[in-house]
Amino acid sequence: MKVTTPRLTQHVLTVEGRTAGEPVLFVHGNVSSAAFWRDAMAALPDGYRLLAVDLRGFGETDPAPVDATRGLRDYSDDVIELVEALGLDRVHLVGWSLGGGIVLQVLRDHPEAVRSVTLVNPISPYGFGGTEGPDGRLTHPDGTGSGAGAANPDFVTRLQAGDLSDESPTSPRSVFRSAYVDHRPIPDEDFYVRAMLTTRVGDAHYPGDAATSAAWPGVAPGKTGVLNACAPTHFRLGDLHEIGPRPPILWIRGADDVIVSDTSLFDLAHLGALGLVPGSPGTPAQPMVSQTRAVLARYGAYREVVLDECGHSPHLEHPEQFQRLLAEHLREA
């Protein structure tokens, strides 16, 4: 269905016949869409109203530009407007990867609207790239090492071209196989790859406008687009513990995630340490998981579950275990 709010028209995926009960709103990750939640939604028990939103610039939602200087608030404000437009009362939020950061921003700004939060391999509360240590301190004041300039240009080109092949390690299908899932065959792979290809490409969306830096590795956050919105100069949630009320958080993550990790293969600092990006001065990798754990430890009301033999997408790789954990969390909340 389509829902028009003052900001934009959003496409929302629903489950037929599930129009009553406590609302559960699913928020997808980067380079994907609400379609990634299709099976997880349908498998939840009765008693919930199930919705998954396409974020701006993804799926069938309006491609409104992203002001990265607001961090993830363009996305989180869209989500809270959707909640208000649908008249949802205290919603359960489920966020994967980028969506994890977005639902935490909703929680930070509107805790009274949230019944529970489930984080699925979320980005760090200190963004993606350009920070060190569990406290998320900036490696350089300008956020060097993060932002749109860190994107692989061949992947961006293939994404824009709608490449469905597996001829290159940087094709969307190859990235899905090697990074979204832990080299695990996934039913309906073509369905998910096509959902990746709904991503709008450009300065206003993915990856965003690139900026340069005098410091290694020579890239810094720009002002528009999704990767810049994730930059630690724009997005920081180290004060999450200061909100009230504090609804319960379930954090589910795959042990073998190569995207969100303390040694992420998508982090330029770690790639420099591996010798894959030349000229590294020894900048340490961003400890993404450790940063999330530190922020949630201060928050207090959380539980962490690590799934073995699982990459970035527990809801696709271990659907039965994921659905059981989510259903238990919703029921307890």
Rank of each mutant, 00 (worst) to 15 (best):
D182I: 01
F26Q: 02
V289R: 13
V27E: 14
L51I: 13
D39P: 01
A229N: 00
T118N: 03
V306F: 08
V201T: 10
D239A: 12
P65G: 07
G101D: 01
T4P: 03
G29A: 07
D54H: 14
F36T: 14
T263I: 02
S178R: 08
V114L: 09
L44N: 10
G282V: 07
V103F: 14
Y206R: 02
Q323A: 14
D46V: 10
N121E: 08
I243N: 05
A43I: 06
G47I: 02
V3T: 12
G162W: 05
Q321Y: 00
A64L: 11
A148N: 03
M196V: 01
V306L: 11
G133A: 12
A269Y: 03
D239C: 10
T5V: 07
P65Y: 05
N121R: 01
A327M: 14
S313P: 00
G225Y: 09
F235W: 12
T14W: 04
T198M: 01
P314I: 13
F266E: 02
V106A: 11
G21E: 10
Q286T: 05
D256K: 09
R253V: 04
G202N: 13
G127T: 11
D39W: 07
D239V: 09
G218E: 03
L227Q: 08
T263M: 07
Y75P: 01
H140A: 04
R158W: 05
G99H: 04
T118W: 02
E16G: 09
A20T: 14
D188W: 01
G143M: 03
L307P: 10
S174A: 09
S76M: 07
T283G: 00
V94E: 10
Q291I: 05
L82G: 08
S168V: 06
G238L: 12
E84L: 11
G311P: 08
